[in-house]
Design a protein around this nucleic acid. Structure first.
Length: 493
DNA sequence: TTCCATT
C-alpha cells in the first residue's frame, strides 16, 4: 500500500498522464508553463461540449476492453468529452456496453454512421452498436411559461430561468403583429433543470398586467410543431446566451481553479486513496503554474520554493490578487485581499445573477486561498510543516449538516470513490462559503456512493460552482454538479 | 447491450 503513497513528483506525473486536455503539469517545469503558455486563457483547456451534443450508447463491447482501450477507436471521429464503460455497481463487472459523448454533435453522427453495426469486435457475435442512448430521447426538458408580462423580452425570460440550468432555447410566443402573447417556451439541457425551474417558479409571482401567477410547466408535446414554427419566426434575432460566458473577465481565473482542482482530484483518483499531502502540494503547484500561465501573476517563476515574499502581482482584469497564492503558497500575506472591491466589481459585471452579494463571499480568489488554508488546517498533526505556513487558520471546522436556502444546495455526482466530506468541501471552497458538505456512504460497506451535497450560503456561489465544476473531468468521467432537487421534484403538473 | 444517485 505504501507504494501507492505517491510522492509529489509521482502524483504530478500521474496527473499529466491522466489528463486528456493538458491540465496536468509537473512540478519541475512550473517555470516554463508546461506547454500551456501558448494558450493563456484559451477556453480549449476547459473541456467543453456542444450544447446539442449527443450521448451515444455503445453496445457489444468485449468485456476485456476498458475506457482506455476504447478511446483510440472512437477518437478517430472527434474529441471525446466523456466515455464511461458500464459496470455493475456492486461487482464492478463490465457490462459490455458504454456511454460516449463527443464534444461535438457532428463527431457523434460520424461515429454512428461509420461504426454502428459495421463491424464485430473480437469475441462478440453481434456487431457493435453505436447509437444515441435511450436517455437522449426521453425526458421532457421543454417548458411552457404562461402569465408573463407582454412587455417581457426573451432576455427577461432568460434572466428569470437561467439560475436553474443551461437554457438551450427561449422563445416568446408572438402573434402575427409581433406582440407577445404573454407566454414562452424555455428549453433546458436536461429534464432535471427544467424540473427545478418548475419547482422554483411555478406560481411564484404575478407579473404586472397578468391575470394570475406565473405558469411554468412542461410544454405540451402535441404542440411541438407549432412551437417550432414560432421559434423559426423569432429565429434570426441573434440573442446571445449569458450562460455561454461563464466568468467574463474571470475566465482566466476560472481556469486557474480548474488546474488546482485537477491536481487535487487527479492525485486522489490516481492514487487509489487520498494522500492529503500529495494532493495539497499538487494543488499548490498547479495553482502556481495556472496563475502564471494566465498572465495574472507577473512575478517571475522560480522553480525552487524560496521563502521570500512574492512581488506584487498585476493583472489587467483583476487588479489585485492576494499574493500568497502566487509563488509558493506556503509563505506570504494573510488572505485579506486589498483588491476586493475591484474584484467584486468585475465579478458583479454580468456574472452574478444576484447582485446583492457580500464582497467576501464573491471573491473567488480569496475563497481559493481560504480553501487552501482549510486543506492545510484539516491535517495539522501530520503536516505541521505546512500548517505552520498559515499561522492563523480560520476556524472552519466542518459544521453540522445544514441546508442552505433555495438555490444554494448542490448535488454532486461522479465523485471519486476516495472523496469524503472534507475533500468535497475542499473542492468547493473556492466558490464561496461552504456551510455543509456531505458525501453519501453506503451503510453496509462504508463505501462512498460517489455522490454528495454541498451547501453554500448564497445562490451566486452555488451557480459559480456549477459553472466551474459541472462537467469537470476526472479520468474519463465527469462531475455532475447541479442544484439539489427540491424534495417535491417528482410531482407532475 | 442503457447510466442516474437528491442530506
Amino acid at each position: 500500500m505504501y507504494i501507492k503513497m505517491a510522492t509529489l513528483a509521482n502524483g504530478q506525473a500521474d496527473n499529466a498522464s491522466l489528463s486528456t486536455s493538458g491540465l496536468g503539469s509537473s512540478p519541475g517545469s512550473a517555470g516554463h508553463m508546461n506547454g500551456l503558455s501558448h494558450s493563456p486563457g484559451n477556453p480549449s483547456t476547459i473541456p467543453m461540449k456542444d450544447h446539442d451534443a449527443i450521448k451515444l450508447f455503445i453496445g457489444q463491447i468485449p468485456r476485456n476492453l476498458d475506457e482506455k482501450d476504447l478511446k483510440p477507436l472512437f477518437e478517430e471521429f472527434g474529441k471525446i468529452y466523456e466515455l464511461t464503460v458500464l459496470k455493475d455497481r456492486f461487482t464492478g463487472m463490465h457490462k459490455g456496453c458504454a456511454f460516449l459523448t463527443y464534444c461535438e454533435r457532428e463527431s457523434a453522427l460520424k461515429a454512428q454512421s461509420a461504426l454502428h453495426e459495421q463491424k464485430t469486435l473480437p469475441g462478440m457475435n453481434r456487431p457493435i452498436q453505436v447509437k444515441p442512448a435511450d436517455s437522449e430521447s426521453r425526458g421532457d426538458r421543454k417548458l411552457f411559461v404562461g402569465m408573463l408580462n407582454k412587455q417581457q423580452s426573451e432576455d427577461d425570460v432568460r434572466r428569470l430561468f437561467e439560475a436553474f440550468g443551461n437554457i438551450e432555447e427561449c422563445t416568446i410566443l408572438r402573434g402575427p403583429d409581433g406582440n407577445s402573447k404573454g407566454c414562452a417556451f424555455v428549453k433546458y439541457s436536461s429534464h432535471a433543470e427544467a424540473q427545478a425551474a418548475i419547482n422554483a417558479l411555478h406560481g411564484s409571482q404575478t407579473m404586472p398586467g397578468a391575470s394570475s401567477s406565473l405558469v411554468v410547466k412542461f410544454a405540451d408535446t402535441d404542440k411541438e410543431r407549432t412551437m417550432r414554427r414560432m421559434q423559426q419566426m423569432a429565429g434570426q434575432m441573434g440573442m446571445f446566451n449569458p450562460m455561454a460566458i461563464p466568468f467574463g473577465a474571470y475566465g482566466a481565473y476560472a481556469q486557474a481553479l480548474m488546474q488546482q482542482q485537477a491536481a487535487l482530484m487527479a492525485s486522489v483518483a490516481q492514487g487509489g486513496y487520498l494522500n492529503p499531502m500529495a494532493a495539497f502540494a499538487a494543488a499548490q503547484m498547479q495553482q502556481m503554474a495556472a496563475l502564471n500561465m494566465n498572465g495574472l501573476a507577473a512575478a517571475p517563476m522560480t522553480p525552487t520554493s524560496g521563502g521570500s515574499t512574492p512581488p506584487g502581482i498585476t493583472a489587467p482584469a483583476v487588479p489585485s490578487i492576494p499574493s500568497p497564492i502566487g509563488v509558493n503558497g506556503f509563505t506570504g500575506l494573510p488572505p485579506q485581499a486589498n483588491g476586493q472591491p475591484a474584484a467584486e466589481a468585475v465579478f458583479a459585471n454580468g456574472i452574478h445573477p444576484y447582485p446583492a452579494q457580500s464582497p467576501t463571499a464573491a471573491d473567488p480568489l480569496q475563497q481559493a486561498y481560504a480553501g487552501v488554508q482549510q486543506y492545510a488546517a484539516a491535517y495539522p498533526a501530520a503536516y505541521g510543516q505546512i500548517s505552520q505556513a498559515f499561522p492563523q487558520p480560520p476556524p472552519m471546522i466542518p459544521q453540522q449538516q445544514r441546508e442552505g436556502p433555495e438555490g444554494c444546495n448542490l448535488f454532486i455526482y461522479h465523485l471519486p470513490q476516495e472523496f469524503g466530506d472534507a475533500e468535497l468541501m475542499q473542492m468547493f471552497l473556492p466558490f464561496g462559503n461552504v456551510i455543509s458538505s456531505k458525501v453519501f456512504v453506503d451503510r453496509a460497506t462504508n463505501q462512498s456512493k460517489c455522490f454528495g451535497f454541498v451547501s453554500f450560503d448564497n445562490p451566486a456561489s452555488a451557480q459559480t460552482a456549477i459553472q466551474a465544476m459541472n462537467g469537470f473531468q476526472i479520468g474519463m468521467k465527469r462531475l455532475k454538479v447541479q442544484l439539489k432537487r427540491p424534495k417535491d421534484a417528482n410531482r407532475p403538473y
